[in-house]
Design a protein around this nucleic acid. Structure first.
Lengths: 249, 249
DNA sequence: TCGAAAGATAGAACACTGTTCGATGGGTGT
DNA sequence: ACACCCATCGAACAGTGTTCTATCTTTCGA
């Protein structure tokens, strides 16, 4: 529970000069630990974040990190919340437009962009709302727009869950690592996708008519557009539900 | 790539019906390896599948598994495809009803049930369509129903991707491990959820009006119902799109 | 029937991981 | 000056995926 004050939350070294270069011992801070963890994840991906690598980046020993964080899961939870904080500030103005669904869409798109930039986010986002207060705040932010629609509590609960689930589902799907030839840069992403499409076109047209039907679309598809199209379907259904409000005129 | 024939793929005796030569094969086989891997995952969860544990179950050494599988990723891909095969047979009859969207929903629900039973599936489903032919077949199966709607190729591509993404997104979300008190059975799932809801109700109502608004719904929610509600929103949007076909008509 | 080639298994070791423990440094207050 | 507690570190532990090499076992042609 959150009622215990944890002094570890604020060991930030007071700012000034930082002139003391002769430190034999390294001095960390919660902010530094999480920031460097996120940086490591962003630069080298999911598997690059190890306690030893992070410690090397911080200039210290691996065991020291355990003073700030109880486990790697908590480290990732906090890293996740750290970038969601940015989403919170980026979506601060997304409310009060004429159509609540427009706000809903704008928030969802911002979250989507954040996750596609950081594929590792999908797996840890909103895993623990105690350690991830910003994730909860984002949930609330979506919910407040749904609140402007005329829905029952159950319907609004389902609506927000659906939007959240859709975003992380699609984003996680897209975040799947291209098998190292795209990472190396030796093969462009377009060519990689094209090769994939060719593979599909080589299938038996009688057995896979649909795959053939959409192979060209797949070859030239844009991830963000694909996401937006699906989100619009979901939101169209939601608007339909909001319009057909039952009872009491 | 797929042009190399791998004999490991078929150590199964291929004699059709009838007189089986009673040639006792070795203890291992591709079928046994994958089946036991799935069993291990089902019984003890994600972290229980290790090469050593699997080898012990098969009655052999850990290194032997590498003759059938090149890496743990491939093992999980094959395990994933193994259970999707069941989904394929379970959804074999889900076509040709009057409304294609009804078929679409039935297939999606079957897939959802399979993933909720096996949370590990979400992370590996459709990761590699070469090693997961059944996943591709399921994609095709959904697509063939969308094909009955009057949509452009791009629209149908987006529709199937949206349904797939939504299913795995929600299922993966639900598959998050309850923190060991539910697993131990010491705390019932209802009580765990209720405790969660209480936590939400303790938040500042002014700052979290939506969370308060749906706390009761969350407390008594049913996962499957939650999924179906979101899916219905998506499908309602899809039907709307299919009804408003543009041009030349 | 024999022997060689291919199929299949296993033990030991390697590099690496998250995590724990005890010891020790260093700043702060008195 | 002293003690005190926060913070850091080195070393070790148990466990992981993976590889290498040696060894069984089956197959099959000469």
């Amino acid at each position: 529970m959150g009622h215990m004050v944890d002094k570890r939350a604020r060991p930030e070294r007071r700012g000034g000069g930082g002139a003391g270069a002769n430190r034999r011992r390294a001095a960390h801070s919660m902010e530094a630990v999480i920031s460097e963890a996120v940086a490591l994840l962003d630069e080298a991906g999911d598997s690059a974040l190890t306690f030893r690598a992070l410690a090397a980046r911080l200039g210290g020993g691996a065991a020291s990190i355990y003073w700030y964080v109880a486990s790697k899961d908590e480290l990732l939870d906090r890293a996740s919340d750290h970038v969601i904080a940015q989403v919170i500030t980026d979506t601060a103005g997304f409310h009060g437009s004429e159509d609540p669904i427009d706000d809903l869409r704008a928030i969802a798109v911002t979250l989507f962009d954040a996750i596609t930039d950081r594929p590792w986010l999908g797996a840890y986002f909103m895993r623990d709302t105690e350690v991830q207060p910003n994730a909860l705040a984002l949930y609330e932010r979506l919910g407040q727009q749904v609140l402007r629609l005329d829905l029952t509590p159950r319907q609004s609960f389902h609506a927000v869950s659906a939007v959240m689930g859709f975003v992380v589902g699609i984003a996680a799907d897209l975040g799947q690592k291209p098998p190292e030839e795209v990472v190396d840069g030796s093969v462009a992403r377009d060519e990689y996708i094209e090769r994939f499409a060719d593979q599909w076109r080589a299938l038996d047209p009688a057995e896979f008519p649909f795959v053939h039907h959409i192979a060209d679309e797949f070859a030239g598809h844009d991830d963000t557009e694909q996401f937006r199209a699906g989100l619009d379907l979901l939101l169209a259904g939601l608007r339909l539900q909001a319009g057909a409000r039952p009872g009491r005129g």
